[in-house]
Every structure is written in structure tokens, then in C-alpha cells.
């Protein structure tokens, strides 16, 4: 009997298996890498109507977050400042008031219509988030928004996924800070151990107990 199948076909099943395994691994790897908020959200940096820079206002001028985000410690929602807050300094005859970059601010001040800032950080409507409970309990803006003081255009620095919330809720001692440093974006713990030690102390002293049960956030 002649060779009905050519010789190379002996390895065909093995080769097919290897190819399928590689394709499978590629798919899993791709989904793992690309299909989570770590890829889909982190780095989201939309164009804003005014090229407002936190690097100028926070780092260069040393302004406190609460001058503009004035309700962050008394309300669940951290407000975007109203136009008047900008006009305090950029009003007619004041700092750079005739700069073309500030034209939308002047227009908003004259017409009374809001500046259409593009919102960046959003949790879904089925989850409950509250700023005041976090910043009053030793969690800094830095832990959730990254180095805002260095951003000339704000981008989303953290995934804001449920796993990310829980990472902290399960071990808040890794993030808690002295109350005086909550609004200081330049403060960093000296070392991981120092952070742990301090965090444990605050956690016990203040009786910090973030919710990890579903009803805490899905209420």
C-alpha cells in the first residue's frame, strides 16, 4: 500500500494543538490586559473647554483643593467650582483676564451659563460613593486621583473599579494619612513599613471600618 497520507501529516494534530493553545493564551492574555478598567479607564484625559491646569494653580500657586472644590469635606459630591471662583482672580483687570485661553470663562461670567467642563471620574449610578466620609477619615485625594498637582490636564489615574475600592476597604491601613496631610499632594510616607505602622494606629484610634459587604456600596 502506498503512503496515502504524506509524511508531514504525522505531526499535524500536535501542531494544531500547539497553535490552538497559543491562540487561546493570546485571547486570554488580551482580555485580561485590555478588558478591565485598568485599561479602559486609566488615562482618560478629555479636552476641556478651558485649558485649566492644576499644575499652575495647585503646585505653582500653592492653592488648597478646598478653595475650588469647596464642599468636598461636607458633601458626598465634590463640586466643580462655579465661574465666580475663577473670576475672583481672573476678573476684568486682574490676572490674565484678556488671555484667549480664558475667553470661555469670561463668556460664562457675562452670560451666566455654566462652563461645559467634561466630567472624567464617574462611578456607575448603582454604586454609592461619598467624598466627605473618605476625606474626613484620613483618605487623601492623592490615593484616588493620583498626583493632581502635577497634571496640567486632569486624567483618570486609578481604575475606580469595584476591585480597586475593595483593595483599600479591606486594608485601609495602607492608605490612611495624618489629617493635616489629606490635601497635601506632595506628602508621601517614608516607607511601606512606616505607612503600615501609622495606618494601623489611625485605624484603631479612629475606629475606621470601611464597608466590605455588598449593601455598603450598593444601597
Amino acid at each position: 500500500m502506498s503512503n496515502f497520507f504524506p509524511r508531514w501529516s504525522n505531526f499535524l494534530p500536535l501542531k494544531l494543538l500547539v497553535s490552538l493553545a497559543v491562540i487561546g493564551a493570546g485571547l486570554v492574555g488580551g482580555v485580561w490586559y485590555y478588558f478591565t478598567p485598568k485599561y479602559t479607564r486609566v488615562g482618560y484625559q478629555p479636552d476641556q473647554p478651558v485649558p485649566f491646569s492644576h499644575a499652575i494653580h495647585v503646585q505653582q500657586l500653592g492653592m488648597d483643593c478646598r478653595y475650588c472644590h469647596s464642599f468636598v469635606e461636607i458633601a458626598g459630591h465634590s463640586n466643580i467650582p462655579n465661574t465666580q471662583t475663577c473670576i475672583n482672580c481672573h476678573g476684568q483687570g486682574k490676572v490674565k483676564w484678556d488671555s484667549p485661553r480664558l475667553a470661555p470663562v469670561q463668556e460664562s461670567w457675562q452670560t451666566g451659563l455654566p462652563i461645559p467642563w467634561v466630567r472624567i471620574h464617574k462611578v456607575p449610578d448603582y454604586a454609592y460613593f461619598n467624598h466627605a466620609v473618605h476625606v474626613n477619615r484620613g483618605v487623601s485625594c492623592y490615593s484616588c486621583h493620583g498626583a493632581i498637582n502635577e497634571m496640567s490636564v486632569v486624567y483618570e489615574a486609578k481604575p475606580l473599579s469595584m476591585a480597586w475600592c475593595l483593595e483599600c476597604h479591606r486594608a485601609p491601613e495602607n492608605f490612611l494619612r495624618p489629617p493635616s496631610e489629606i490635601y497635601n499632594m506632595e506628602w508621601h510616607p517614608k516607607s511601606f513599613d512606616a505607612q503600615q505602622e501609622m495606618g494601623m494606629k489611625f485605624k484603631q484610634e479612629w475606629n475606621v471600618n470601611p464597608p466590605v459587604t455588598c449593601g455598603g456600596c450598593h444601597r
Binding site: 490586559y33 478598567p37 485598568k38 485599561y39 479602559t40 479607564r41 486609566v42 488615562g43 482618560y44 484625559q45 478629555p46 479636552d47 459630591h77 456607575p124 449610578d125 448603582y126 486624567y155
Partner: peptide
């Protein structure tokens, strides 16, 4: 991951994520 992008994050089934209410 982490590259800057102007594209808003994709929301596949946005009906519960963005409910018809004002925040």
C-alpha cells in the same frame, strides 16, 4: 495600560450604569 486617551471609557450595557436621574 495607562496611556492617555481622549476616548471616553466604553460602557457596554449603560442602562443601569447611567440611570435616568440627575446627580
Amino acid at each position: 495600560r495607562g496611556w492617555k486617551s481622549k476616548r471616553p471609557p466604553i460602557e457596554i450595557f449603560p442602562d443601569m450604569v447611567r440611570q435616568a436621574k440627575y446627580k
